[in-house]
Write a protein that binds this DNA or RNA. Structure first.
Lengths: 216, 216
DNA sequence: TGTGAAAAGAGAGTAACTGTCAGGTTGGGT
DNA sequence: ACCCAACCTGACAGTTACTCTCTTTTCACA
């Protein structure tokens, strides 16, 4: 699942975009911005799929979305972000946090993942997967992916720490989460190499192996 | 230990640099190239430490090392590579491969790490650590680090697969290595946050936790 | 000492970003 | 209805990493 990997790029982004922070009910201004943002991302993804990521320039995206380059960079601080931005991340973190307290971390994790996947409509899932493939195939994207991961890892560490009642900077927690993310990472790339591989199955395999004490 | 993390950047690099491939005994030409390479990296690191990574331009490095920018890019395909390039990686992989076959993977790993660290002189170790700190602190470097990791992970997976007599594309192997690298990654960053932390100890902790079946 | 191949340099070009400034748009308060 | 302040947007110039192509220099070897 992507969530864990890229998670926290999002809150940072939103904060940086000058939303008022509190207002949960979006005003006209906010909604217009949201639309502009989606429009840019849509055009960007469409161009990437059509002519490849590196052969698409920001200028082209801006033109297609009918905004200036300045505006493009106001919405996405880098070109890569148009791909890496993941709207399911906060959903996952929320589900994870709301799993019953008596569940072991691995079970909570698994259930949260299932719930997120169940909610995604098949059509949206297809689009997501093409986005994932893009990330897996484009070196530049693969490269900028894990910086998001690092922050995401920190957030997940917080959630796990809370669940087991320990401090989030506890070394054991950090190592645990690091191993988890690394394993899922490996499973993710294995899944992208398998033409009709089911991402969720691969990730399940990773979780199961960790749960079993990492046998070889 | 860095080795695992950045490993394979090196062979690629060397292959791309037009060395004859076979000749193990270096001729004058080869040695001159090696010197130029070191000279560039030395000046680069010195400038980074003095004025910061992002405030140092390739032009400045080239000038300081008395080469043209063209030449700079012939030796390092990106600016980040001047930092990420790790001469201990091949050493580590070799040591790991030569551990007695009856050792469990975790033990082989631990011993190989110790052997590498023992060989490094204290002075060189200090320099290495300042390099690591640079990587940990500079966002752009953190970002470009894991692409090297990915290739390094693949090489480590090969070594592990051979050791346990399985195919390197075995999913369990890939997950195992992924978890290992992820855990070490986490330990590494924890170590950089601890002013007088000993990297090796942190990494040892990660290995021990994995060995114990990843308890929480 | 001459010669062919490899290395280095020169220079023009591309594209991702950054910073600034000026003009237009929006929304809350009167 | 109007105005002010905050905000959004575009235009534009500049920086810098990186690429390509072409020419000149250096060096191994005969």
């Amino acid at each position: 699942m992507w969530a864990i990997l890229t998670a926290a790029a999002r809150p940072v982004r939103i904060a940086a975009m000058g939303s008022r922070g509190h207002a949960p009910q979006a005003g006209l201004r906010e909604r217009k911005k949201e639309r502009t943002r989606s429009r840019i991302q849509d055009h960007a993804l469409r161009l990437y799929l059509k002519q490849g990521y590196s052969r698409t320039t920001v200028e082209q995206i801006a033109e297609a979305a009918d905004v200036s380059q300045s505006t493009f960079f106001r919405y996405f601080s880098t070109k890569a972000e148009t791909v890496l931005y993941d709207r399911f991340d906060p959903v996952f973190l929320e589900k994870f946090g709301h799993q019953p307290a008596e569940l072991a971390p691995f079970d909570a994790l698994r259930r949260a993942l299932w719930e997120v996947f169940e909610e995604i409509e098949p059509e949206a899932l297809m689009l997501e997967q093409s986005r994932w493939r893009l990330v897996a195939e484009e070196p530049e994207l693969r490269a900028s992916l894990p910086e998001g991961t690092r922050q995401g890892t920190a957030m997940l560490a917080n959630a796990v720490a809370e669940r087991v009642g320990r401090r989030p900077d506890d070394l054991a927690i950090r190592i645990w989460v690091g191993a988890l993310v690394g394993a899922i990472y490996a499973a993710f790339f294995a899944a992208t190499e398998d033409p009709d591989g089911n991402y969720l199955e691969y990730i399940d395999a990773a979780i199961a192996q960790l749960e079993a004490g990492l046998p070889l």
